[in-house]
Amino acid sequence: MTDSFFFFFAVIAATLFAGLSKGGFAGVGMVSTPILALVMPPVQAASVMLPILLIQDAYSVVSYRRTVDRRNLAILLPGAVLGIALGYSLASYLPQAAVALAIGVISVGFSLLGLRGRTVARSKRPAKVAPGMFWGALSGFTSMIAHAGTPPFQIYVMPQRLERDLFVGTSVVFFAVVNWMKVLPYTLLGQFSAETLKLSFLLAPLALFSTWLGIRLVRRTDTERFYLIAYVLLGLVGLSLGWDGLKGLFFA
């Protein structure tokens, strides 16, 4: 690690984006690990982010504990367990760029369909078991590989048109559980060190403040505008992931 201004700017920006995501603007936090990867190796960046995410999860879960869709959690979490186990098994072999490109393309396509569909009256989709298990597994897998589990979760849950706080609360609890599931695999893979843990906990106050700020902003946003923002963020994240995948596969 380094003492440069750019290094501190990167870690502060990454923490702020993660907090806004945990506060309810799901998706924006996915830029956190890539930002850190500008100033440290990607594996080290992921290991710094996980304790920060756990701290932010605790605050978010307390804030949204009364607005959770238990049926969605019951469907998604078993799939996430399988996805995390698969991600752990393939962590050393799978080209992360290919995963990023695939998720990026799917996310952009879904975002465009969602934004187009806002002008058409549509019925809400129910929470179905088979699709939920699939998207839950994909969310757990991509979260384990690159802290990129948000797009699969959104692709499954957003068409249900849950109320704003119910959507956010379900997302918060789902990823809090997923992140705790990742602690053991990350430990077994040797991704934590005294240096990364020290940096994570030095950033804890900023992590809590940014999560509080995200919650305040979300609660000032009505449901329709919230979904518009969510679809736009999903598309932007998809473009970012897709570009990262293309660079890794063809320009590395």
Rank of each mutant, 00 (worst) to 15 (best):
185 P>R: 10
124 K>Y: 04
131 P>H: 06
50 L>N: 00
137 A>P: 13
63 S>P: 07
75 I>D: 10
78 P>C: 06
117 G>A: 12
127 A>M: 04
123 S>C: 04
146 A>M: 13
100 A>V: 03
148 A>N: 08
86 L>A: 08
94 L>A: 11
91 A>L: 07
140 G>K: 02
47 S>R: 01
83 G>E: 12
142 T>M: 14
76 L>G: 06
95 P>T: 03
175 F>I: 04
46 A>Y: 00
68 V>T: 13
65 R>I: 03
162 L>T: 03
85 A>H: 02
75 I>P: 08
92 S>T: 11
154 Q>H: 15
171 S>D: 07
99 V>R: 05
148 A>E: 06
153 F>K: 13
119 T>E: 09
175 F>C: 05
69 D>G: 03
179 N>H: 01
57 D>F: 00
97 A>S: 15
124 K>T: 11
68 V>I: 15
136 G>H: 14
70 R>H: 09
50 L>M: 01
90 L>A: 09
63 S>G: 01
60 S>I: 04
178 V>W: 04
93 Y>W: 13
94 L>Q: 05
141 F>M: 11
87 G>C: 04
120 V>A: 15
77 L>W: 02
114 G>R: 10
80 A>N: 06
161 R>W: 12
128 K>P: 02
105 V>W: 14
107 S>W: 14
120 V>D: 00
91 A>Q: 15
134 F>W: 10
46 A>Q: 11
69 D>Q: 11
98 A>K: 03
167 F>S: 14
52 I>Y: 03
131 P>D: 15
51 P>A: 03
91 A>E: 12
121 A>C: 02
175 F>D: 11
112 L>P: 06
81 V>R: 02
185 P>W: 05
51 P>Q: 03
101 L>H: 12
54 L>R: 01
107 S>A: 12
164 R>K: 13
59 Y>Q: 05
139 S>I: 07
